[in-house]
């Protein structure tokens, strides 16, 4: 079992303080400053402690997610049996729906009921999600800050890890690009799967981008406000949604339209078996994204009406 993140953070803190937990931090004050405590809190939330995932809590709180997935989003997850029954696996999904991400709600319920809450399952999320007020709640569900180290730590413990390479970029793509896979050239998931020696299972969902009218990534606005440097935020999205009507940033979320969410689990890909010992990362990226695009186009073709499905 790996050392817990909180324990690691505490040890690092003690090391900076000469090993004395009572000695003040580098600020030189008698008590840690408010700012220092704030950054410590942020840091602790971004450090993955796999023990934060609480299977009993998940079991007791699945009913609310199941209700949302069933009644509001009429969720349908196909071919869960394609996910390897045991062992570490990297689940790679396309991401939709702004900050509400209904595809995650639907898939997380399906995974936990299909394999049982006993199977370790972690989801990688943007730093901002983990530091938001819902962060502690999501950590109990197995959400950890998206980083190579956090993901590797979970995979090394034989967990299933869900990653959305497109992340904050893809989730805010304009409505007219709803049926497009857009990972923005992010290939870290491939290196992660190769390093950890785990299979990739692509997960394709449709419908999430119909829960609001998405107008723009707002990437220029984010750069102008230096949000990319300060908060790792590449976008400041603009959408039309309830109850805000014009919603800039989507920081408080929105009331999603009850669009039908369909999720398709694709066949697992063993990268080393398929691409050999010295694989071409660009080729893998093209193959994975194009096969996911084909799947997404198929799912989109099944839909007769927006939102209704």
């Amino acid at each position: 079992m790996p050392e817990s993140g909180a324990a690691t953070a505490e040890r690092e803190r003690q090391s900076q303080n000469g090993g004395d937990p009572e000695r003040p931090g580098a600020g030189g004050f008698g008590r840690p400053s408010l700012l220092r405590r704030f950054f410590d809190e942020v840091q602790s939330r971004l450090t993955a402690d796999l023990d934060d995932r609480d299977p009993d809590f998940i079991r007791e709180n699945l009913s609310l997610s199941w209700l949302m997935a069933t009644i509001w989003f009429r969720g349908e997850v196909r071919n869960m049996e394609r996910i390897p029954e045991q062992g570490p696996v990297l689940l790679v999904g396309n991401h939709s729906g702004g900050n509400i991400t209904p595809d995650t709600i639907v898939f997380t319920v399906a995974f936990n009921t299909f394999f049982g809450v006993e199977r370790p399952f972690y989801q990688l999320a943007h730093n901002l999600v983990l530091t938001s007020p819902v962060g502690p709640y999501l950590r109990k569900f197995g959400t950890v800050a998206a980083s190579h180290d956090n993901a590797r730590k979970a995979l090394d413990c034989d967990a299933a890890v869900l990653v959305y390479p497109g992340g904050d970029w893809e989730v805010n793509r304009p409505t007219w690009e709803a049926n497009r896979i857009d990972f923005a050239g992010r290939k870290g998931f491939i290196k992660l799967a190769l390093d950890a020696g785990v299979p990739i299972v692509p997960i394709v969902s449709v419908g999430g981008q119909e829960t609001a009218v998405f107008l723009s990534h707002g990437d220029r606005l984010a750069r102008l406000l230096r949000l990319d440097k300060l908060l790792r935020l590449k976008t400041l999205p603009v959408n039309l949604s309830l109850p805000w009507i014009v919603n800039i940033g989507d920081f408080l979320g929105h009331l999603p339209l009850p669009a039908k969410i369909t999720v398709q689990v694709m066949e697992p890909i063993d990268l080393q078996e398929r691409y050999g010992q010295a694989p071409d990362i660009d080729r893998i990226y093209d193959d994975v994204t194009s096969s996911m695009q084909d799947q997404l186009s198929e799912l989109a073709a099944e839909r007769r009406l927006p939102v209704v499905g």
Binding site: W66, A69, T70, R74, G75, E76, V109, A110, T113, G116
Partner: peptide, 12 residues
């Protein structure tokens, strides 16, 4: 066993 109920396969 698992049976499809709503958005998920439930059972155990």
């Amino acid at each position: 066993m698992l049976i499809r109920v709503g958005a998920a396969d439930v059972g155990g």
